[in-house]
């Protein structure tokens, strides 16, 4: 039997900002066709996890493989939906321009945007009901509309693995339903989706699998296995404070240990 590498494989990943650890020793393998919600309290490292997978943040230790390859090689197979606040919405581009950006990976950097690219972009906008707004400057949209533009862009990337950072944050109810439908639809088509989510109550119905994160990976698995009071308490409760405190000291020092004493 041919071994098909999983869409996402993370091994012993440690990330820290300014010597404060954000992620510590995360190990996880996500299977193809999963719809995974990443939940955890504020500052649990959810966004950092996505950014590290994307290669935006450099890890201090461990590695990430996407379809069995380092990120750089598998880059065209990944679609990314950043947090809405991460871009400048006054930027001089129209809705269509933004969605077309999703096609740049396919078009090649020098080639012109083809008719086909435009058609695909337009279809993606249709799917999120944003077609009528395609000529608008992106600042003139509501929060939910902006989020849908981002989703359309991710769709236009035609990726196999989608990483979404808080797509439900600050959107209206209609957009929320639309996004959920879209996620389901993508999953049906065999795509893998990893979605950072801030609201525990809705996570249960939106996703199939849950990744409980609080600096460490507390649990990962099917919804019924992971959505248990015990594990949630562990993720959100204060029981592991020593863990984070001490890991903080250790990660702060890990850097010199690596360069200073390789034997450790």
């Amino acid at each position: 039997m041919v071994h098909i590498p999983p869409p996402l494989e993370i091994h012993d990943l440690t990330v820290s900002y300014d010597r404060k650890p954000v992620l510590y020793g995360v190990d996880v393998v996500v299977e193809a066709g999963s719809l995974v919600g990443v939940v955890g309290p504020n500052g649990a490292g959810k966004s950092t996890l996505i950014k590290t997978i994307m290669g935006i943040v450099q890890p201090n230790g461990g590695w990430v493989k996407i379809f069995g390859q380092p990120y750089r090689k598998a880059v065209t197979r990944v679609g990314y939906v950043p947090q809405r606040e991460s871009v400048d919405w006054d930027f001089p581009v129209s809705v269509m321009d933004v969605v077309l950006m999703g096609r740049y990976g396919h078009a090649g950097l020098m080639r012109r945007v083809s008719k086909r690219d435009r058609r695909i972009a337009s279809e993606c906008l249709e799917k999120v009901n944003m077609q009528p707004f395609s000529d608008r400057q992106i600042g003139n949209l509501s929060g939910g509309q902006q989020q849908r533009v981002f989703l359309a862009r991710a769709l236009a990337q035609e990726s196999d693995l989608y990483l979404m950072d808080e797509p439900f944050a600050g959107v209206d109810a209609a957009t929320e339903t639309a996004i959920v439908e879209l996620l389901r639809d993508l999953k049906e088509r065999g795509k893998t989706l990893i979605v950072v989510h801030h609201d525990l109550s809705s996570a249960r119905e939106y996703f199939d699998k849950l990744m409980l994160l609080n600096m460490r990976l507390v649990a990962y698995g099917e919804m019924e296995e992971t959505f248990t009071p015990d594990l949630l308490q562990k993720t959100y409760g204060g029981r592991l404070t020593i863990l984070s405190d001490v890991a903080g000291q250790a990660a702060g020092r890990s850097e010199f240990e690596e360069e200073g004493n390789p034997k450790l």
Partner: peptide, 19 residues
């Protein structure tokens, strides 16, 4: 407490023990 597998904890402890 943190439910780590017993064979996963050594490396971590190697760092933590000093701090």
């Amino acid at each position: 407490e943190a439910r780590y597998a017993a064979d996963h904890v050594h490396e971590d402890a190697e760092k933590i023990e000093h701090v």
